[in-house]
Amino acid sequence: MAKLTIPAEEYMYPGHAACPGCGAALAMRLLLKGLGPRTIVSMPACCWTVIATPYPTTALATGLLDHPIEATGASISGLRAAADAMGLKDLEIVGFAGDGGTADIGLQSLSGMLERRTDAIYVMYDNEAYMNTGIQRSGSTPAGAWTTTTPVAGASHGKPEPKKDVMGIVRAHHPVYAATLNPSFPEDFLRKVERARGLHGPRFLHVFSPCPPGWKYSSERTIELGRLATDSGIFPLYEVGEDGVLSITRRGGALKPVAEYFRAQGRFAHLTEAEIAAIQAAARANWERLLRLATPPPA
């Protein structure tokens, strides 16, 4: 029997209301394995508030607080202040927000929390659109993607603008820890959660979160798509410590072509060869930029 490579303990209950094959559900399961039961998760309006609480149940064995969509950063700052006032020193405070609630609506609150040096972990699970309300584009939707508000019809050919660089915005606040995580790589995912848990101060985790209905692919391919995203340089895995040192945590040698990742998803089905070639060039440039930032620089 193979040894377990991630903790056996579960703090997410089955019976939750996520779609079959939901990347965000696996992300939560892995996250809580790393954080343990002395955790309070604070969520804005997002897929996960619906997933977690089919009334009168909860899918989390930890504490759970619902808050308004723009308030994740403020909520976890307040929870930390309350825990301090009550003398509760062993609590981990976690904000768990989608990309819309982070990159768009909650950006001011995230910035405030980072700037106040709140001792908490902010998790952005990134399914690259407002999925809970039915696939509207967010600032984190990648260029070219179909959504209901960036349709493929007439003059519209998917989202024209590139994805917002939330990690760049977060890094400019110099948090004690920031990392990108992907549930397709559970061991790397858990190592980063555990590293974040051992630190104090503002910490940020950007979690890749494939969405079968929103990205238009068959639910059994969630893990495969996550792997392709990282190995093609679309979602590189790296971490940044308090000293600003950036380490790439999965190199995997030469990058895979992005076409395999794009062709697997209905939201990109309309893209032409030339458009995919342009995305390939952008992914390559982004990867090379990361390599230059990485310490120690590669030989």
Binding site: P14, G15, P20, P56, A59, L64
Partner: peptide, 15 residues
Amino acid sequence: IAAVPSSTLVTSSWR
């Protein structure tokens, strides 16, 4: 408000 685990629900009827 929600103290009952979601594992009391049946979700396999979706499949």
